[in-house]
Write a protein that binds this DNA or RNA. Structure first.
Length: 258
DNA sequence: ATGGTGGTCAAACCA
């Protein structure tokens, strides 16, 4: 079984790329983030005729998470839809959708963007991660994958120039500690062992030819529970998907299970 | 400190 995650930065504007990606890599389950549409706006006919079922949660033009599966999709659950108190048009959205696909629990995650250190969104991000971790502890003994855009670069080598991020989110100790918490609980970054070397990125900003210069960040991850991780035989980042006209700013991340 | 590009939806906000 082959599972992928991709921050697609608008599903409608990239539906052709999504369909080609699924076909090119023979994907069974695809977790999407930043779908940027209400469910009724989504162009699903081609995907349905290709045999994919769909679970979606998105209430505005921003964000939105989805799961596509051609190996079944059961017990769909929307996670963390609302954390009151921020009075923010973005925060009330659901940022996680989970389903059991082919016997594996997959959570498509869009971890909040903290914007600036100490911005209310930054604190919201940390709080959201703490709540996710609490829930994820309960899933550790089942085959579970927490996949998606974590908006955290866990190591210095996960950004193109750590000095350039001195005052930025994504690399602060509290964010990294939040990410490490999942590892401490037993989740495993199942892709990194298959992508050796520093500066192996999943995201490159659209500006200033960051992709062409490989000035990127590694912020998209597949964290597997032990019973998931032990089934992973391969993983890779589809860097080619970031190239050319009409690319998302994120590349898909793919894992193979036995 | 700002601005660079791209998406949504047609001004301003988000990444």
């Amino acid at each position: 079984m082959r599972i992928a995650t991709w921050n697609v930065n608008s599903l409608r504007s990239r539906i052709d790329r999504v369909e080609r990606f699924l076909e090119r890599h023979d994907i069974d389950v695809l977790a999407l983030q930043e779908t940027k549409a209400r469910e009724e706006q989504l162009p699903l006919m081609g995907l349905q005729s290709a045999g994919y079922e769909f679970a979606y949660s998105g209430t505005s033009q921003w964000n939105g998470v989805a799961l596509l599966s051609r190996v079944g999709i059961e017990d769909v659950e929307v996670g963390f839809p609302e954390m009151p108190g921020y009075g923010d048009p973005v925060a009330p959205e659901a940022r996680a959708i989970g389903a059991t696909c082919g016997g594996v629990r997959v959570w498509s995650l869009y971890v909040p963007n903290g914007r600036k250190v100490d911005d209310p969104h930054y604190h919201y991000k940390l709080e959201w991660l703490a709540r996710l971790r609490e829930a994820a502890r309960g899933w550790i003994d089942t085959p579970t994958a927490l996949v998606g855009d974590w908006n955290i670069a866990p190591r210095d080598e996960d950004v193109y120039d750590i000095a350039a991020f001195a005052k930025d989110t994504h690399v602060t100790p509290p964010e990294r500690a939040a990410f490490q918490g999942f590892l401490d609980d037993g989740y495993v970054d199942v892709v990194r062992p298959h992508t050796p070397g520093p500066e192996v990125f999943t995201y490159w900003d659209y500006y200033r030819q960051r992709f062409e210069r490989n000035r990127g960040m590694r912020i998209d991850f597949v964290l597997g529970s032990p019973s998931f991780a032990e089934r992973v035989v391969h993983g890779f980042i589809d860097r080619e998907e970031r190239a050319g006209q009409g690319a998302s700013d994120h590349a898909p991340v793919v894992v193979d299970l036995d």
